[in-house]
């Protein structure tokens, strides 16, 4: 058995975080999202970013090319931390300079890559755990303070008027309280996830619960919401799912460092 956790001075990532970064960096390759890595400044989210409209298009094309270079570097394990940090930063630019591209899945993907790029063995994956805790905690907070979530109005409108969910609609016909139950369940689950990710020794519970939550959401919405977010979260959770000590051939395969293994 070998330990893939690198010493402090190397520019390296353990197998789990590296695989997670590799999967997250593929996020813009989802169908219909090929342009995601190329920010297209239009209406900036904040007034102090209005100047980005004046940035020549070639700069954004260079950014996209740089992103692809980082993705290749990550998959070839060439300076993986730096590649992850740069790729994540490029993804984060998109939602900030283009209101139409503002999406939590992009922001999460960007932040995960940046945090993995800043990986530090001393803190291992705690920054990522705190990140996920903040995300779920904030999502729960937003919902619990919204009366439309508390009384089921949002869920009723969303599932009936917008998504036209047949199964949920059939249940509502039998019991009108289902919308309120789903709303409350969402923020109870999110609040629980926020806590679980911070509990030492409970990371596998947190991973299992998060996967169940996002998988359950896909089932509940009959495949409508949200494949992209589930992909980013699932890819991120891979970071926690591999042990730090892995059988060498598997480790070599995961990190694409077969030549390095043979030499050693």
């Amino acid at each position: 058995m070998v330990t893939l956790t690198p010493p402090v001075e190397t520019d390296d990532l353990p197998a789990g975080p590296l695989l997670a970064a590799r999967l997250v960096v593929l996020f813009p390759l989802w169908p219909g999202f090929l342009g995601l890595a190329r920010p297209n400044p239009d209406v900036a989210a904040f007034a102090w970013l209005d100047w980005t409209e004046q940035v020549p298009g070639i700069v954004w094309l260079i950014g996209a090319a740089l992103y692809l270079g980082c993705a290749v570097a990550l998959w070839l394990a060439i300076m993986p931390r730096a590649a992850a940090a740069v790729a994540g930063s490029i993804i984060l630019v998109g939602p900030l300079v283009d209101l139409g591209a503002y999406a939590n899945n992009r922001i999460l993907a960007g932040l995960v890559l940046v945090l993995l790029g800043l990986y530090e063995p001393r803190t291992h994956l705690w920054p990522l755990r705190i990140q996920l805790s903040v995300m779920y905690g904030a999502a729960a907070l937003n919902k619990v303070f919204d009366p439309d979530w508390r009384d089921g109005t949002f869920i009723e409108h969303w599932t009936d008027d917008l998504l036209d969910l047949r199964i949920h609609g059939a249940v509502r016909d039998l019991w009108s309280g289902i919308d309120r139950l789903v709303g409350w369940s969402a923020f109870v689950i999110e609040a629980t996830l926020a806590v679980l990710f911070l509990l030492p020794g409970r990371i596998r519970w947190a991973v299992a619960a998060a996967l169940a939550f996002h998988g359950g959401m896909l089932v509940f919405t009959e495949g409508e919401i949200s494949w992209l977010f589930a992909y980013v979260v699932g890819a991120t959770l891979v970071a926690f799912s591999l042990p730090r000590s892995i059988w060498p051939p598997v480790a070599a395969l995961l990190t694409l460092r077969v030549a390095e293994l043979v030499i050693s």
């Binding site: 939590n104 904030a138 999502a139 919204d146 949002f154 977010f229």
Partner: peptide, 10 residues
């Protein structure tokens, strides 16, 4: 913005 509010108010 930047509040992790997905599909909170449509």
């Amino acid at each position: 913005y930047l509040a992790w509010a997905p599909y909170d108010q449509i």
